[in-house]
Computed example of a mutant assay.
Amino acid sequence: MTSPSGNPDFSGAKLPAFDNLTSSHGRAAAALEQLAQDLWAQLDRMGADTSAAVEIRDLARRVRDRVTDLQARQGRVHAMQASGKGSVCTAAGIFWPVSEAAVPSPRPGTPPPNDPAALSYELWDANFLPRTERLRSDGKPFSREENAVLSWISVHRTTIIEEARKRNISPQAIVAAISWEAMENVQPVRHPIPAGSGLGSINQRLARWATGPGKVHTDFPLVKQIEERGYMPRKSLAEREALLSTDEGSIKYIAAIMGAFADSTDRDGRFDIRYDVPRLTHLYQGTDLERWEDHLRRKPRGEPFRTGNDMAEWAGRNRLFLDEAVPLQPWDKNPVPLTPKPEQPPTRMPTPTPTPGARPTPR
């Protein structure tokens, strides 16, 4: 981030871009650390030179140093935002000053202040956001983990609501998927081996791994189906992994997936699930579009839509948490969902038929 209005003496950050930058750096550091560990184990098992793994480990340490500095600055920016003081408004947006002077930063590998919440890797950086001690509407306090996730949701609230509105679904369903994965399906680190890394069978096995908020699986049939049907642009596996590793990219995919399920269910005509959070999360966690549509075709008329997987049950039990995060329906009138437009293959131009020119007159 640079200065607004071209002032070389100003260093500032713009939200939510600075949050996305910090999150992506944090995931990159964790990925490099895990990659160094896994590569060293593989090379050592084969009796090969492990120096490449050591070099990656050193790189991971340098990235981690940068991450801890970014996280310290991120905490200060959000503290200023919460107080409403210190912002600089320009035509390009609102910037928050971040001094380039040395600032106390948490040491690499040490927990952030205020006892870190036990969150999954994709939302662990929520520990560096200002954490308000909130109370439920029934007067009971939220847990440390719930407060940390609510702080993260607050940062991304605008994106969540905008994407939900595009698809005419409840933003609470997006929040429920992200929150359940962060608090109930806690994973310490995502395996870092990316698609196309050339690591043979390991790469093939892990190309279907999950990544950012909501743990959208990067190579499962579901993401391919929503791209083929036009809910999201077609991507290569590497491009999709890069997008899903960002907070905004994951939110967009989750909204598109839930919107696609809602559209398929509308066409069947028996159930309205657009603002039914347990049903949307049940489908998000438990099936893909083609399997769901086949299930609807075979489902006897009059048989109810039963939910039962872990995410759906959690969403049903935690309505107070979801109400605190975002409204069930933030608009007065239901929006018209976007009409998906499948990406068409590029039109191949016909090969022109060569036309012979005038034959040169021999001398």
Results as ranks from 00 to 15, higher is better:
residue 180 W to R: 05
residue 258 M to P: 00
residue 356 P to L: 09
residue 225 Q to K: 05
residue 146 E to M: 01
residue 88 V to G: 00
residue 191 H to Q: 14
residue 79 A to S: 13
residue 92 A to R: 15
residue 140 K to G: 05
residue 36 A to G: 15
residue 191 H to N: 13
residue 202 I to G: 08
residue 321 F to D: 04
residue 52 A to D: 06
residue 244 L to V: 07
residue 209 W to I: 15
residue 160 I to N: 02
residue 211 T to R: 15
residue 72 A to I: 08
residue 294 D to Y: 05
residue 28 A to T: 10
residue 145 E to A: 07
residue 326 V to I: 03
residue 129 L to M: 03
residue 327 P to L: 03
residue 121 Y to C: 02
residue 281 T to M: 04
residue 329 Q to C: 08
residue 355 T to H: 14
residue 215 K to R: 12
residue 250 S to Y: 12
residue 64 R to L: 11
residue 153 I to Y: 07
residue 96 W to L: 03
residue 317 R to A: 10
residue 264 S to C: 07
residue 166 K to H: 04
residue 198 G to C: 02
residue 114 N to Q: 11
residue 300 P to I: 11
residue 344 Q to Y: 01
residue 205 R to E: 05
residue 341 K to L: 07
residue 212 G to C: 02
residue 209 W to F: 14
residue 345 P to Y: 11
residue 159 T to A: 06
residue 83 S to N: 13
residue 160 I to L: 03
residue 129 L to C: 09
residue 154 S to D: 15
residue 218 T to N: 05
residue 216 V to Y: 04
residue 156 H to E: 14
residue 202 I to W: 09
residue 9 D to P: 05
residue 237 L to W: 05
residue 211 T to L: 11
residue 236 S to Q: 12
residue 277 V to K: 03
residue 6 G to K: 11
residue 359 R to D: 06
residue 125 D to Y: 14
residue 258 M to S: 03
residue 136 R to D: 04
residue 158 T to P: 07
residue 317 R to N: 05
residue 185 N to K: 07
residue 190 R to A: 11
residue 336 V to M: 02
residue 186 V to S: 01
residue 55 E to V: 12
residue 298 R to G: 14
residue 121 Y to S: 01
residue 208 R to G: 13
residue 345 P to K: 11
residue 179 S to H: 02
residue 67 V to C: 13
residue 25 H to D: 08
residue 360 P to G: 14
residue 196 G to E: 13
residue 291 R to F: 07
